[in-house]
């Protein structure tokens, strides 16, 4: 393999990392506070739609990303209110969000133009940074930056301490004077915003289009990445990269004539999932989750 190929795979992996890691660090924030949102896939999908519409309507890629963030935040708010104030089941809400998004995005695409597909003009896509060895999306840098920031906030600030306290022992946090549900709601919104950004990245940056199945399971992969990372945003960066790497690698090597003769492409396509499973089972093993994860907090 030539050097150029290695750069190529590197860039594919980095670009594939972005949505998974963004969604995963968002989920990390809310899981740290005790909320488990299985509806990431749905938020990604809605974010992708909002991003495309926002970018095109405003004529600016940044506004598209903002639209994704806003939409994600809104769904995060819905999820947060249902699972804190209304003490609803987080799992059911998450599944509902996924199903709603699947229908809603396809419906909107049908109603707003061509069914199933909407492209984002090149001019309002996120411009790439040409590096000579390949093009880098600035969103890769944003993702790395956000992962570091989230890590810093969660591990090295008062706010992070509060968030983790609310997740570990909501009663203790309450007694210490924290507003448990408000904090949780805040993390749900933040998580939604990050997932929405991840979704908008798909349409406004990575693919330059939104389709009704654009997420292709990446929200679920992000959930797996959270477990893989053990709620560490920096490891989520690594997890997203590894998954992106193997996914890119699988597609990449399936174009190589020599390899195709040895292994059927279907087995190459399985590889990222098998490897993720093995990594989670082998290297990481048991992950300690916050004690209050998934349980609504009720004072009396």
């Amino acid at each position: 393999m030539e050097l150029a190929h290695i750069w190529g795979i590197l860039f594919i992996s980095l670009h594939a990392m972005v949505p998974i890691t963004l969604a995963a660090i968002g989920e990390t924030i809310e899981e740290s506070a005790g909320l488990f949102n299985i509806g990431l896939e749905g938020i990604l999908l809605l974010g992708a739609l909002a991003g495309a519409i926002g970018a095109e309507a405003s004529g600016s890629a940044t506004m598209g990303l903002m639209a994704g963030i806003a939409t994600g935040g809104l769904i995060g708010l819905l999820f947060g209110v249902l699972s804190t104030t209304l003490r609803g089941s987080q799992l059911i809400t998450g599944v509902g969000i996924n199903m709603f998004a699947l229908g809603f995005v396809a419906l909107m695409l049908t109603l707003l133009g061509a069914p199933g597909f909407h492209s984002v003009p090149r001019a309002v896509q996120v411009p790439l940074i040409p590096l000579g060895i390949g093009n880098l999306s600035p969103m890769v840098l944003v993702t790395v930056f956000l992962a570091v920031v989230v890590w810093w906030v969660l591990r090295r600030t008062q706010l992070g301490l509060w968030i983790r306290a609310v997740g570990e022992n909501p009663a203790a946090a309450d007694v210490a004077g924290l507003r448990v549900n408000t904090l949780r709601l805040g993390t749900a919104i933040a998580a939604g915003m990050l997932a929405g950004l991840a979704g908008a990245y798909l349409s406004v940056d990575w693919f330059g289009a939104v389709t009704k199945e654009i997420t292709a399971g990446r929200g679920f992969i992000a959930l797996a990445t959270v477990v893989f990372s053990g709620l560490n945003p920096l490891l989520a960066l690594l997890g997203g990269f590894i998954f992106g790497l193997f996914e890119g690698l699988a597609t990449w090597i399936s174009t190589y004539p020599a390899i195709k003769k040895i292994i059927p492409w279907q087995f190459v396509a399985m590889a990222p999932y098998i490897i993720t499973l093995l990594v989670v089972a082998g290297a990481i093993g048991r992950v300690r989750f916050p004690k209050g994860l998934g349980v609504p907090y009720l004072r009396e």
Binding site: T157, Q158, L159, L161, W162, R164, A165, E168, N169, A171, A172, A173, V175, A176, G177, L178, R288
Partner: peptide, 20 residues
């Protein structure tokens, strides 16, 4: 009413009224 995974000081800090 403690967070077992936190240190003593961190447990105290949970109740701190400090900037986020």
């Amino acid at each position: 009413m403690l967070v077992p995974a936190f240190t003593v000081a961190e447990n105290v800090m949970v109740g701190l009224n400090a900037p986020g």
